[in-house]
């Protein structure tokens, strides 16, 4: 569950960059596509002003096996993790941030990890599963952390 600091528009922009567009896909599958599902979910949340997506985790299109651009997915996933409120024991599966994370994770890793309500714990999990992706994701997460002074 999220609170006031969440910027869903930032996540939406990052997710938009993952979209392969009709130029590559020929026809947009919308809700049948992991990225399309993220976009619709975020739009629903923004429009309803609610962080909860009823049944959102259950309806993720797990049969979308398209290959996305890894660099875009990593940037989007890092943005999602930066917006995560770190609810730990109060983590909610149907939180829009979690639903988006789950869909992006599936596109990036091809499998689902158990999210424990903490971005750092998640980064460690990803690192254990795939050290290369884990390292890159951690670097992006650290680089884009609010308050960090950009390198000269």
């Amino acid at each position: 569950m999220a609170s006031r600091e969440v910027n869903l528009e930032r996540i939406r922009s990052a997710v938009d960059r993952c979209c392969k567009t009709e130029a590559e896909c020929k026809k947009c599958e919308k809700v049948g596509c992991l990225i399309g599902y993220c976009q619709l979910t975020l739009d629903y949340s923004i429009q309803k002003r609610s962080f909860r997506i009823p049944g959102g985790s259950r309806h993720i299109p797990r049969r979308d096996f398209k290959a996305y651009y890894q660099s875009d997915l990593l940037l989007a996933l890092a943005e999602v993790l930066l917006q995560c409120q770190g609810c730990r024991d109060n983590h909610e599966e149907e939180c829009v941030i979690n639903v988006t994370r789950s869909a992006l994770e599936l596109a990036l890793l091809g499998e689902s990890l158990n999210y424990e309500g903490s971005a750092l714990l998640y980064l460690m999990q990803v690192n254990r599963l795939n050290p290369d992706i884990g390292k890159e994701l951690m670097q992006l997460y650290e680089k884009n952390k609010p308050g960090r002074i950009p390198e000269a």
């Binding site: 919308k30 809700v31 619709l40 629903y44 429009q47 997506i53 009823p54 049944g55 959102g56 309806h59």
Partner: peptide, 13 residues
């Protein structure tokens, strides 16, 4: 509750 139906209708499912 019909909230899930509302979401599904929104996303076209």
């Amino acid at each position: 509750s019909r909230e899930e139906e509302d979401f599904l209708s929104f996303v076209g499912l």
